[in-house]
Nucleic acid binder design. Structure first.
Lengths: 344, 344
DNA sequence: AATTAGCACTCGGTAACTTGGAGTGCTAAC
DNA sequence: GTTAGCACTCCAAGTTACCGAGTGCTAATT
């Protein structure tokens, strides 16, 4: 069954008003709004219908109405008027990129911080996957007789390092030869493929040149089991505490605890197709996220989807504003990173 | 004025009981304790004296007593019976070191986690200062025509890296020469002294060998302005939420916000002399820390004081247990790190 | 002189009750 | 189809009553 224009108007005003005030909206206060030119009685009738259809709810028998999850969903899908960002927001976001920086992490970290400050919600940024970067150079630096550090530099300037124990039989020239072979064979290979490639292509070469090649091989290969997890950055972790709907300490605790556990966040933000995605309340499939919504956007470099920026807030979230901010930031991030990557 | 033995006994029992129950302690319940063999009326008289001396307080006219900050202070200084750790605690702590690890950070991070789990308070670990480590090797790896990554490896296996822009006039052989000079001159220098040393000793050498040496010099030196901050690690950030005395959301918010701001924590944990330090409530000189205590312990490698482990909890903290745990862990950390450092 | 029993008093917390206001649903009139 | 009117519902805030745990003081006891 389709909603009438009047029902849509009422639904929209209810959602807008509740997002602003966090108070149930009654027919009388609705009838006083400019946009609305019919009486409270009419509104009551329409609200009864909207409730029957599942778009709004009462908190108790004689209370005003609040949007249901389904109501928010409809609002987000059909009623959202895209908010135009004001100049101040825009320049704050652009300040992220003002300074000349070479490292992703700094940019990303600052994005998270500013996003949370602009919205008063919690921001989560999933950093670019290191594992798809291509290897630029490997270096192995012995620390003492027993241990050495392997350093992997990617074409994006990211540096990974691993300490590993050095087989006693390996001497300096062996090490040098090995590093040369590795660099020769592995440059340009993505980090996630390194391990594979080492066993398939490099092992043979090593055998020909290096005494005790197998010990060496395993030591290095072991240290190569990259933790492929993308780094997470947060902003405004405690912002939930200022939302009026979260006065229950156990609810807050479970939310904050979830935020501090990276696996949970990975589950929540799973890589999605490009663009904006909105998950409202139970759509997140996680009871901790009841009464919370998550809006995600992706950013990329060139064609490659790199990471995700997200805002976690109450279902009573300023969807319009958050979406605009995310769209704008993701566009800017993509532009900057694309440029950075091209340069490589 | 000195306290009588009986007053000491009563003070001790009050503190112990309040730490356990979080409830004000009344004379009647005190008189029922085994340790106490006199009537509630006597206890009331003694409590009136203790209150007059500032060791205990009432929450309202006819309530039981709770320890004052001064009371906790006296308790900590004179009444604390050192708790012997049980076997389970000990083996949990030792599990931190079970796995063979080369990297500090992992050990430190795990320490923070386990400490918070054992105590149910928030743990803070100030990692070893990177800046006192000695340089083992510098590498510079060009990414493209304009940028390069400088990599600094310390004798402890720690790796720092900085991306910087490469002067257009520098070619590969210049770079190689520079790296050689740097390694030749700077090996063994502590990171914090690098910048100094570069200008004082290396500049001249570079001038002799490298065309356009000054651009090169500044690029590298700039990237060397190490952020000398020691890394912070946390465990159980949300544990405060389960303490009954913190039911006020604004209090919780200010505490959690403080924890998320590293400068605040540095202020709180300032480097202190070796050993255990206890700061109760206002002794922390920070109103956010009202009703909170902080216990810190230092750990070292050899003679060098490396870092700090700390527990943040309510003033109503299990001082005895926390102190024992910190002592034990700091001893173990010191032992392990001393060994690691010797090996270098 | 120190200890204790006894008692009046205080205060917080809980439960029961009252009241006012905001809101609803329904009916009848427009 | 819309709206005015009205009875009804429920929450929230305020009031009152009451219980229990605790105190301080005094007088009796050791």
């Amino acid at each position: 069954m389709l909603l009438t224009d009047r029902q849509l108007l009422i639904l929209q005003v209810i959602v807008d008003d509740f997002i602003r005030s966090a108070q149930p909206v009654g027919s009388r206060s609705l009838s006083k709004k400019e946009e609305i030119s019919f009486s409270s009685a009419t509104i009551r009738n329409e609200m009864a219908d909207l409730e029957e259809l599942g778009y709004i709810e009462k908190t108790h028998t004689s209370s005003g109405r609040i949007p249901s999850e389904q109501g928010y969903r409809y609002y987000v899908d059909h009623l959202l008027s895209p908010q135009v960002l004001n100049q101040q927001d825009i320049s704050i976001i652009q300040s992220i990129f003002a300074e000349k920086i070479f490292e992703f992490e700094k940019i990303i970290q600052r994005s998270a911080k500013i996003l949370s400050e602009l919205t008063n919600y919690t921001s989560i940024v999933l950093g670019p996957a290191v594992s798809i970067n291509k290897l630029k150079k490997i270096q192995i630096i012995p620390l003492n007789k027993e241990t050495a550090v392997a350093i992997f530099v990617t074409d994006t300037g990211h540096v990974e390092n691993r300490t590993f124990s050095l087989p006693a039989s390996v001497d300096a020239s062996d090490l040098e030869k090995t590093v040369n072979i590795l660099n020769d064979r592995l440059a340009g290979v993505s980090l996630e493929d390194l391990n594979d490639k080492i066993y398939k292509e490099v092992a043979m070469l090593l055998r020909q040149h290096i005494h005790n090649y197998d010990l060496m091989l395993h030591s290095i290969a072991d240290s190569l089991k990259m933790p492929a997890t993308e780094k997470l950055f947060f902003g405004g972790k405690t912002n939930i505490l200022s939302q009026p709907e979260f006065h229950d300490i156990t609810k807050i605790r479970s939310l904050l605890t979830m935020i501090d556990q990276e696996e949970w966040i990975y589950n929540l933000i799973r890589k999605e197709s490009a663009g904006i995605h909105i998950k409202i309340g139970r759509e997140n499939n996680n009871s901790i996220m009841d009464n919370c919504s998550l809006i995600t956007a992706t950013y990329s470099a060139g064609l490659e989807n790199l990471g995700t920026i997200a805002i976690l807030g109450p279902t009573r979230m300023e969807y319009s504003r958050v979406i605009s901010l995310l769209q704008f930031l993701s566009k800017d991030l993509t532009a900057v990173l694309t440029k950075l990557y091209q340069n490589k």
